[in-house]
């Protein structure tokens, strides 16, 4: 049993363990500070192909290609990147293929940057409008079970799914203010 203090800092390691447990071989990402520890773990793993994208929608397409070839993948991104994915989500929907997304939230809880708020506020609605099953994790203890559910839903039921990791878990970037 993990203590609350451990979960507060260890949730990225718990996600990494889940990616291994689910046999994830391809990790597509546009970096976010909230995912930096997880990204480091994935980069250090020779069994994972980590691909840094120029825009998040590439990740939706890449995971489709991976699944065609029999490999499981996951897309890591920040909430603003969800906006870049909208039309490409038609690909896993029409083909009925797994597309799990792990989204770290901005513009969500104590945001400093006005430009993050519109997309942060719309992230869940936009994903759901595009047929994605969305679950939120707003405490560190919730992250691992929610990510596990998101991976299971994607690979067992062949559809886009997402976990939104709230800014309450990540802490708001303050720019020194």
């Amino acid at each position: 049993m993990q203590s609350a203090t451990d979960a507060a800092t260890d949730w990225p390691d718990q996600i990494y363990a889940l990616l291994k447990e689910h046999g994830i071989r391809q990790v597509a990402l546009v970096p976010d500070a909230g995912h930096s520890r997880l990204i480091k773990r994935c980069l250090a793993d020779n069994d994972m192909k980590v691909v840094t994208l120029t825009t998040e929608e590439e990740g939706i397409a890449m995971l489709f290609g991976a699944w065609l070839g029999g490999e499981k993948g996951v897309l890591l991104m920040q909430s603003s990147g969800v906006g870049n994915c909208i039309n490409m989500l038609s690909v896993p929907i029409a083909h009925r293929t797994p597309c799990p997304m792990l989204v770290t939230m901005r513009g969500d809880y104590g945001e400093f940057n006005p430009f993050q708020v519109p997309m942060g506020n719309a992230t869940q609605a936009v994903l759901e409008a595009m047929g994605t099953l969305v679950k939120r994790a707003d405490t560190p203890e919730d992250v691992a079970p929610t990510v596990n559910a998101t991976l299971r839903l994607a690979f067992n039921t062949y559809r886009p799914t997402a976990t939104l990791i709230g800014q309450r878990v990540l802490g708001a970037k303050t720019f020194g203010k």
Binding site: R25, Q26, V51, A61, M62, L63, A66, G69, M88, V91
Partner: peptide, 13 residues
Amino acid sequence: GGAAVMGLGLALA
């Protein structure tokens, strides 16, 4: 816009 990078995912797999 996704065809080439679908190819990447498939080629890696």
